[in-house]
Design a protein around this nucleic acid. Sequence first.
DNA 1: CCGGTTTGGGTTATCGATTACCCGAACTCC
DNA 2: GGAGTTCGGGTAATCGATAACCCAAACCGG
Lengths: 334, 334
Amino acid sequence: MAASLNDIARIAGVSVKTVSGALHGGSARMAEATRERILEIASELGYVTNLAARSMRQGWMPLIGLVADDLITSPFATEIIRGLDSAARSADMAVFAMTLGGRRDVGAVLEEVRRFRPRAIAYAAMYHKTVALPEGAGDVVGVMINCQEAQGRVLSLVPDEEGAAHEITRYLIEAGRRSLAFINLPGLLAGELREKGFRRALTEAGLNEGTMPVLPAVRRAIYSDRAPSLVAHHVAALLDGPNPPDALLCGNDRVAMEVYAALHRLGRRIPDDVAVASFDNQVDIASRLDPPLTTMALPHRLMGRMAADILLSTDPVPPEVRRLPFQMVERRSV
Amino acid sequence: MAASLNDIARIAGVSVKTVSGALHGGSARMAEATRERILEIASELGYVTNLAARSMRQGWMPLIGLVADDLITSPFATEIIRGLDSAARSADMAVFAMTLGGRRDVGAVLEEVRRFRPRAIAYAAMYHKTVALPEGAGDVVGVMINCQEAQGRVLSLVPDEEGAAHEITRYLIEAGRRSLAFINLPGLLAGELREKGFRRALTEAGLNEGTMPVLPAVRRAIYSDRAPSLVAHHVAALLDGPNPPDALLCGNDRVAMEVYAALHRLGRRIPDDVAVASFDNQVDIASRLDPPLTTMALPHRLMGRMAADILLSTDPVPPEVRRLPFQMVERRSV
DNA sequence: CCGGTTTGGGTTATCGATTACCCGAACTCC
DNA sequence: GGAGTTCGGGTAATCGATAACCCAAACCGG
């Protein structure tokens, strides 16, 4: 159906190799007239390179395979794909994403991707966690994004949760806040690490850590319709208690959204009475709140870009865990 | 590098064709013992089908190409990909998405995708609009998703905006509301069509359409940090004016979010004083608001699924425009 | 004028899976 | 017991691009 090099060669009266040289081998020596004639015919025929055919010799398709837990469907994690894509494009490659979408068998999905003979494969998680790859997948997956491989066999890129928490907490303290509370998300690796950073910053600042409450909001609070009441309850209790906070650090932007609502209802002004800061920078939320929310942006795009660079680089990379810095987005809630 | 049919054949002491038959041709007649031996060797060698090689004979890769204006990065429009993917998977195909990402030249992106020899190509837009495909792309793109081709040369799947507005307006009226206002988004095709449906429902219900205000909120109101004040201004003006509305229909969920905030500030209760309804069902927002928002869900997933079915069906489809129904998501704001 | 070098381009094998075609052995049936 | 059938499987061509290798003509210096 589609025109091939052969078709062009026949019409141009030259051999396929000459056509191939004219179209792709920039450095191939040939008469300028010949090259131009070939280009013209190719364009007339609507010739499009057949990458599958090329890949037979090359051994792989110009693809970076991406296996994601559920990533593509997550709003802000698409940044990972953007990062991957921009780096891949520079190498004339494309990103081929496949989502687990509830399927348990990671090995099977990996095989599905491998059928397309990608140059390399990355595994990405929707939220920061530890992932156990199946037997033998360690040689197949070149880099883990937003998660770390359980056995430490694969190079992993993860957000520096602790560092980010430390930074934003310091920022709050430097803004003059002295009574800080952290309304965290329970059961998440990210939450644990952020709590560590939070505590460390308090200790370093000489604030009595013991009096700084760290509240885990029930997970249901975040995803169910009843959320407002639970977070609101925590906020009210904090403000009512001894040493009421003048700054609330939130587990993520959604929690911050609830906190805003609760503070509004309680008649507190942000940031005058209480400063609010958070993690993620889920733009839809963070920039839409009133006042816009100061939050630590996850380094999703950076992880994507670095992953592509690593996958495409020729020199081998040790299977370490690399913690990538968040970026603080200052808005008006502090 | 990777094991091929040839490798397996050599080890098993049979010909490639026998191996091929054992692994793929389910109906190929052969001794059960032979088949089992081959399967075992294949598994030992970690054999993975090379789809590129297969595609050389087939003429195409088992891929559905998706060219999207900026789609993959949009939170809820990823539903389109899910729909495409689930339908494609049934046919043992995968979706290969490529985003324009600011690049002007749709033709170039189409060619980039065509190099991979997908079975068919769909074009998807992030929001409902009219798209002019470049010369010759009409034969390449099999279906337009969430947009209609300017020349009407390609089958297009779009949300039935007018029908949805008509339905939700009727719903508000049947809930006893008698004074309705529509805070719309300006400059969008979807907005225009929804307005038509809104007006039609009012007329049919015998409500004097003339007194029912349709307010276009400034686009800036939606995407800039200053949004609240503008939408809030409209809401306040409406409630202060003659015939104050007991129901507000919003251009989308984000507008509804602003409207909620404005109503809260004005001390109005939802839905007791004012019912609020909207379009999109951007779940992050709609289900998180207090009270949860009743909204018309865009048929994104349906569009994706239908697109795949159309692309994979053998019988030709006329290049018409198909309007797909929204789904009402009843929550508690009406 | 001759041997060596550059220029321009042809020949052909190759990658891996599929498939049309062929063939021998065993089995069935009258 | 001979002719047709089924079974099990081999041979070789093919898809499109590439690349190692080859070759003829032109050109160059001495």
